[in-house]
Design a protein around this nucleic acid. Sequence first.
DNA 1: TATCGTACTACGGCTGTCGTAGTAAATATA
DNA 2: TATATTTACTACGACAGCCGTAGTACGATA
Lengths: 115, 115
Amino acid sequence: MKQSISSDIIRGYNDTIILFFLREAPSYGYEISKKIRQLSEEKYVIKETTLYSAFTRMEKNGYIESYPYQDPDTGKRRTYYRITDAGREYYSSRCREWALTKEVIERFIADEERV
Amino acid sequence: MKQSISSDIIRGYNDTIILFFLREAPSYGYEISKKIRQLSEEKYVIKETTLYSAFTRMEKNGYIESYPYQDPDTGKRRTYYRITDAGREYYSSRCREWALTKEVIERFIADEERV
DNA sequence: TATCGTACTACGGCTGTCGTAGTAAATATA
DNA sequence: TATATTTACTACGACAGCCGTAGTACGATA
């Protein structure tokens, strides 16, 4: 019974998590999902449907752009995504919001319970 | 254009915030909403419908119990809520989850953007 | 008399997450 | 060579929680 992260708290932060990786380089669904697992040390595993619907939403919002890409080695066709300037701004604003949110939520978290 | 907290990130933490106050003493909707505003210094103002639906949900889940109460001074009738043992356990588990979640999310928040 | 603060309830919409299912090609294993 | 697993998605619909709108009712204050 490992403690894990509820989807309600991560809700709305998936976009930020995805953009965190796209800031550094364009990528695609499967790779991003693996990177999330790795960086979180298996503590957070994004669901496929959640991930791909986030792509759709963010492209609609202009935070990312998709383009087809064929891997020169394997020949695999994938949909790659790159971050836009609007996406970078959005990421930054979410980071600032996070700082504020964290500070506020912690006022409602009892010290003794913090483990 | 003050930076404020989005409902998506607070989502699912409203229950915890409410229980934070009920742990100390029974209370009712209006009072709790005021306390949230105060403790967050206006950074988070819970919506009425959100608050009352949280009460309903938590009572259904057995985390709180309601009882009618008439104020001896004003004569005002209110629905008071008190926390149950299950509610205390739930609060504690949410606090532990928070510690984990915070740690994980921060891996996806770039240092430079932290302000 | 009217407005404001208090203390709610009802209803329905919206968004993001997730379960289920299916497709298809490449790679690994037996 | 046959089968399983991994990779890389798409479609559909359910669900939960938040929130906008609206309305009720009562007391205090202007």
